[in-house]
Design a protein around this nucleic acid. Structure first.
Length: 630
DNA sequence: AATCGTAAGG
């Protein structure tokens, strides 16, 4: 967007433009200038036009007043619009509509309804413009009841045949979850335009239901047959359908080409930022985050949506460092302020990298922006602090009464305690949650059970498992069952674990057998171990981790012939395991370590300290007696 | 000579 500097605007008002214009019709040219103010959201130019209107005695000119009201609203000052409105002696429907729309453009929906009521009281007849504007309000706030009233009103007055009113009504029905009503209206329309088609297509695409792909393709064809070209709105809906898992990823690339060829973003996305977002999102969803980044890099303008889409793309593709770097660049290089969703996107990276410092900084930022009462954000903070190992901070967020906790808040903290071996605290919290009348969900139960497993609280775990199923109607999922097997197994109750697997209400999956494998290894039960491995490898013949751990166990018993056999099988099947690693963040730099890794510049001193720690442990800690933990 | 409608990121 070209921003008019106040100087240019001043020149425009006072010299060339205005003087040449004043010879013919000053009011018409002021109208033109106000149109410019709207196009550029220029408060300066609006003020200067306003001053001219007053000094030339045009303050009661209805045309200028209508535009002036729109201009102030477009600059974000609907209260100024109201003052202009108040100063008019004759209040036409144009004036009312312009003012109501001004409030709507500034998200003051209550004010819009209030004015509408006032307008009706004043006996002003509403028209198609009023109806369309009010319909938009209903869409924005999802008020189906009010929307239906507007629909009724449109039918009575006869404006339901108006394309724009009908489009607004269709959109309202989509937003209020009444897609069938939208389709009905679409079918009844005597005449349609591109927006009519776009609203229906978006309605199908937003439903996320794959079964509609055929309908959408038909609609796009018919739209073109009726003489309408696909535009940015159409393409952004279509991009939502392009996914790897339904084999439609290549269409995404084609649509990208379509956007470029048809200049839908005018010389690469200089104009339609939204399309850029959709492309970045489409590529990220399909694990082509690099292609998304290329779109991002070539964009001429980037707003907070674009930056957040890119950050989120990296997070979803596991590139945490890149996400954090981008989050920083967004603010420093582009001066774009993160908002609630940006923070929600970036917070998981701090948890996953255990980057406590960055996490705390984001928390501080959230407090400054007064976003710290937001439920989702608080939940993300609890999770982040838990994963960074700082349960006290997590607890502090959790206990802050300025937000209303939900089941996710409880689950995050319960899992946090469990993760750090504080099983008793986790169980205590779980019980407190129930006492307060909150219902647990599957994730809460997994958190509580794994906490019990890690801390050897078998009786507590069994109690939680039984009550979750019988009292809270939580179906025993594969994940919950795996937690139970893990808990029993870790405590040495291998037979009990196997019995449970045999009678389990769901089919035992890899996670269940994997838990039994680990427990058998822990307790040196070879027979059980072989049995569990057999099932595990049968269920997951392509998972390299299974073979690596199998080979490691046999290696530790020096059964080299079996090790060789396992490695051969892996090679034959082309399986390669991504090496696991550990990491630590110090002053916002993440240091990563693989097994026997000597690549770190401080490697020598690190191993020196490590050796020291190992000998210290060997000297004072006895081999663990797992029976004691039951 | 004026006032109206379609999209996004967790």
């Amino acid at each position: 967007m070209i921003r008019l500097s106040s100087f240019k605007a001043f020149v425009l008002v006072t010299s060339r433009y205005y003087h040449s214009a004043s010879l013919s019709s000053p009011s018409r040219n002021l109208l033109h200038l106000l149109q410019l103010s709207i196009a550029h959201s220029s408060l300066d130019l609006t003020h200067q036009c306003h001053a001219r209107i007053l000094s030339l005695g045009f303050s009661q000119n209805p045309f200028l007043a209508t535009k002036l009201i729109s201009a102030y609203a477009a600059c974000g000052f609907p209260t100024e619009s109201q003052l202009v409105f108040n100063s008019l002696e004759q209040k036409s429907v144009y004036l009312w509509n312009s003012l109501i729309n001004g409030y709507v453009k500034n998200q003051k929906y209550g004010e819009a309804f209030r004015l509408f009521y006032q307008m009706c009281c004043c006996g002003v007849l509403l028209d198609d413009y009023t109806l369309a504007t009010l319909c938009k309000v209903c869409s924005e706030i999802g008020d189906l009841k009010a929307g239906k009233l507007i629909h009724g009103k449109s039918v009575v007055i006869g404006f339901v045949l108006d394309i724009i009113v009908a489009n607004s009504l269709m959109f309202m029905y989509c937003k209020c979850g009444e897609f069938r009503e939208c389709l009905k209206l679409f079918g009844e329309m005597p005449e349609r335009n591109a927006t009519s088609w776009n609203v229906v297509i978006a309605g199908y695409a937003d439903s996320g239901d794959r079964n509609f792909t055929k309908e959408i393709i038909e609609l796009v064809k018919d739209m073109q047959i009726e003489g309408f070209k696909l535009d940015g709105f159409t393409v952004s809906s279509l991009l939502l359908l392009c996914n790897n898992d339904n084999g439609k990823m290549d269409y995404g690339r084609e649509l990208h080409g379509f956007i470029v060829r048809n200049e839908l973003g005018w010389g690469f996305l200089g104009s339609d930022i939204h399309l850029g977002c959709c492309l970045i999102d489409m590529y990220s969803r399909n694990n082509k985050v690099d292609s998304g980044k290329r779109v991002f890099d070539r964009m001429k303008r980037r707003n907070v949506y674009v930056w957040t889409a890119m950050i989120n793309g990296y997070v979803q593709n596991g590139a945490m460092e890149e996400a954090l770097v981008l989050f920083h660049e967004m603010q420093v290089k582009d001066g774009v302020e993160p908002n609630r969703v940006s923070l929600l996107s970036v917070l998981p990276t701090c948890g996953l990298l255990a980057d406590f410092t960055s996490g705390k900084q984001i928390h501080g930022y959230a407090i400054r922006k007064k976003l710290n009462h937001d439920l989702s954000l608080c939940n993300a903070l609890i999770d982040m602090y838990s994963k960074c190992g700082n349960l006290n901070y997590a607890r502090r967020v959790f206990e802050d009464r300025s937000f209303c906790r939900d089941v996710i808040s409880w689950s995050s903290l319960i899992s946090g305690y469990g993760l750090h071996g504080m099983g008793k605290e986790a169980v205590f919290l779980y019980d407190r949650m129930l006492q307060k009348g909150n219902k647990p969900d599957m994730i809460t139960v997994v958190g509580a059970l794994s906490a019990c497993g890690r801390s050897g609280l078998v009786d507590e775990g069994l109690r939680i498992y039984n009550s979750a199923i019988s009292e809270y109607g939580i179906g025993p999922t594969a994940e919950i069952c795996a937690c139970l097997v893990d808990m029993l197994g870790r405590s040495g109750r291998l037979e009990m674990a196997l019995d449970f697997i045999k009678t389990m209400p769901v089919e035992p999956g890899p996670s269940v057998w994997g838990a039994l494998v680990s427990a058998s290894i822990l307790h040196g039960n070879l027979e059980m171990q072989d049995l569990a491995y057999k099932f595990l490898i049968q269920l997951e013949p392509e998972n390299p981790s299974n073979y690596v751990s199998l080979s490691n166990i046999h290696a530790s018993c020096r059964r080299w012939h079996i090790v060789a056999k396992v490695r051969t099988i892996m090679k034959e099947r082309g399986l390669r395991k991504t090496p696991g690693c550990s990491w630590i963040s110090i002053s916002s730099t993440t240091h990563c370590f693989y097994a026997a890794d000597k690549a770190h510049p401080c490697s020598n001193s690190i191993y020196e300290i490590l050796d020291g720690l190992i000998s210290l442990m060997k000297g004072i800690v006895h081999p663990p007696d797992f029976q004691c933990m039951t």
